[in-house]
Design a protein around this nucleic acid. Structure first.
Lengths: 242, 242, 242, 242
DNA sequence: CATGAATGAGAGTTCATTCAT
DNA sequence: AATGAATGAACTCTCATTCAT
């Protein structure tokens, strides 16, 4: 950088490439051995560089881990958005199925990192992925859900946060269960039923019901939502006062 | 002589007490710093004993961690069973609410350990809590659900594993969300709505529906409860303002 | 001791018996694992007593080792003297053969201790067997040799210390060689030839030679013995082949 | 780049020099305190390097000790061969005297290591110098002796292994005696008489006797050698059959 | 006197980080 | 900029010795 006034594009891209190589190597090693179990030497060897070189890209092991985790979550977000973009269907439930499929598989494949992200948030203040990175990921679901409501496919009185918790929570719990049965049982649990059941739960529970009693039902549901919104306002007010 | 052949009750209980002290200290330190971050010296200091003493109770750090984790999960199971035993109601949904309440709170308080349990299962084969310990815990839900089906309160075509995944998965995900809002936001998410929404999800989705007014009745009851809570909040708010 | 003015014979002998038990156990463990490799706990367990008890007999591990070593050398001396006493023959060379046989076997069986004795003399000033104990042992040879000179069986111009060095040194070196071939070779070196060659060396080199035919006689006798041994081997071989 | 692909001669020799420094320091500390008594920290301090550095040259304390011991024995072998090469005389006994002188002095100076070598072979399987290293050393004597037989200076019926055991065994035993008198006595035993007596023993006992009865003696000796060769053949035959 | 649970200093070893080349 | 040899603090675990019972 300092050696030339304007680093050529080649130099810049070279550095960026090396940074990617380091991140990739670090990711592989961190996944295999966890944060404490990973050794910088092994990461360097896998990246095909010297140990010291890592330190001209990242200040410490913790910072490297952080970069890996943030890249991981950003990657997830991009992938999830890619999945949403590539789904032809406009129907909410078809799109939900695609997202569920993607998320379930992702969680199974990357369970280590998802665990690590939250495990490290607690007892290693140095390695704490910012909430924003995590929120961006779940925002994919939020957008899908809100659009479903806008399009009249979902009940308008549905509570977003609950739907979100159910969606991600159940899938992650299922992933863990699936993985545990993989370890030594004969018949491992499959992924498809999990996805299907999730979609059918959403269809039954959050799907709009265009039937006759809609009037009364809608009235009650509407009341409920109004109350909830009011509650929220009161909460915020109370928050400001404290 | 006699003291050797038959260790007196005093001696035996002394040893057992010391073992408990060690486990308790170990648990505290492991929670604070994770497995690798925990120092045996600190555990010893907290237990008020010498470092070497730990090793006459547990062969290694890993074994100690394992004992802590298994004791933790066994404790959770016992507590959950205790909660179920102490709930007077026989109604499935009331009992479910009690269990959800307990689990949500437990998961918030002990998120560290739950994370640790699964994080260690992956990259530290030495510290791997047996599946049985984990299964015993979720069996509490399974028994409750099956009984609900037997009593005709739940649809008999419901899939147990899905219900279980939704129950535990959503609650744990919610707990994580709640905790993240606790860290630095003004208005933390509350536990009660999570529990209530979970119960009402089960009621709507898994509940047997013999009568048609049930839906309305339930909704009205729910509304009533929401209003009550809102009232309470407004009261508190006005209390603060005065 | 203090509890009664005069400890009864029973008490005294009890203590002595326990002391013997400790020494025996210590010896076994020290031989198996060396000084540093031996653990006091294992010695106590083998002696069938508590760990602390050892310390009321010996101040430290080093002192215990010292006691073991001194007892060992005293035992060797007594045994060697016993061998000398039990040999009927008065002929020097017959007696020498008995002593050589005993020493060679002893050195093979107790090589560990002999090594340990001298290894510890160097780098562990605490565990240093007094020279007297060692001298007492070799004095057995000295007396035998001097008597042989007195009786006119040995040249009077022979140098005692050289004869002694050759006797003990060669036998110990042979023992080491024999042991090394024992480890993994098919055909281990035997003890008998070593003893015989030692005796014949002494006969030839230190024996008084009054008669001239003695040389021939001795040679012929040697040939006769060699032929006998060969016959025996051939017999055994032909036995196996049949 | 160039520095990586081809480590300059300077770099290579630097590493080799450091390795020598470590070995030298380790040797000094091991000699002073024995294997278990030696502290890695002290070795590092003496070598003027950090503790961890040792471990990039040797995997463990045991491996370091092994390297020290093997270097020691290889060094002895080279020195002994050097002594043999530098002796002008072709006469067997002159050459033997040189070797005896060298060995006796070596054994006195390095008694620690020789003891350690064999002490560790027993109760520490990790630190066991290969038999080959030890055999190479004694092969110096074997070659000298066989050449003496070829040149007609030594009796052809002499048994090599006995001569070897006597040579090395006596000298080592003498060394030990000399050392023990050094410790606190007024008049220490000297080295020269030991060497001289050893040479004169060989001259008298193994030297060829060109005197008159040579005819008869030779015949008898020849018979003896024939028998011995036959014995050896029978042994080999028996070895093959087992 | 005998015990063995408790101790804690000290051992070998690891590995993130530094820095001379 | 890149390297990897060097570092040494910090780790887990051992075990001779002590001492309350």
């Amino acid at each position: 950088m300092a050696s030339k006034a304007v680093p050529s594009e080649t130099q810049r891209s070279k550095l960026e490439r090396k940074e990617r190589v380091i991140l990739e190597a670090a990711r592989a090693i961190f996944v295999d051995h966890g944060f404490d179990g990973a050794r910088m030497q092994e990461i360097a060897r896998r990246a095909g560089i010297g140990e010291g070189t890592i330190y001209s890209y990242y200040e410490s092991k913790a910072e490297l881990m952080l970069a890996v985790l943030e890249q991981f979550w950003d990657g997830l977000t991009l992938e999830a958005e890619g999945v949403m973009a590539s789904v032809q269907a406009t129907d909410f439930f078809d799109r939900l199925q695609a997202l569920a499929q993607y998320h379930l598989n992702t969680v199974i494949v990357n369970a280590d990192f998802i665990n690590l992200t939250f495990a490290l948030r607690r007892n290693n203040s140095e390695v704490s992925v910012s909430r924003d990175h995590l929120r961006h990921y779940v925002a994919v679901f939020d957008r899908l859900f809100l659009r479903g409501q806008d399009r009249g496919e979902l009940r308008t009185d549905a509570v977003l946060w609950q739907a979100r918790d159910i969606f991600y929570g159940s899938l992650e719990y299922s992933a863990r269960s699936i993985e545990m049965t993989l370890e030594d049982d004969r018949k491992p649990r499959e992924q498809e039923p999990v996805v299907e059941q999730m979609v059918s739960l959403f269809r039954a529970h959050y799907g709009a019901r265009p039937e006759r009693e809609a009037a009364d039902g809608a009235t009650l549901a509407g009341l409920s939502r109004q109350i909830e919104q009011l509650t929220e306002k009161v909460d915020m007010l109370s928050g400001r006062l404290s």
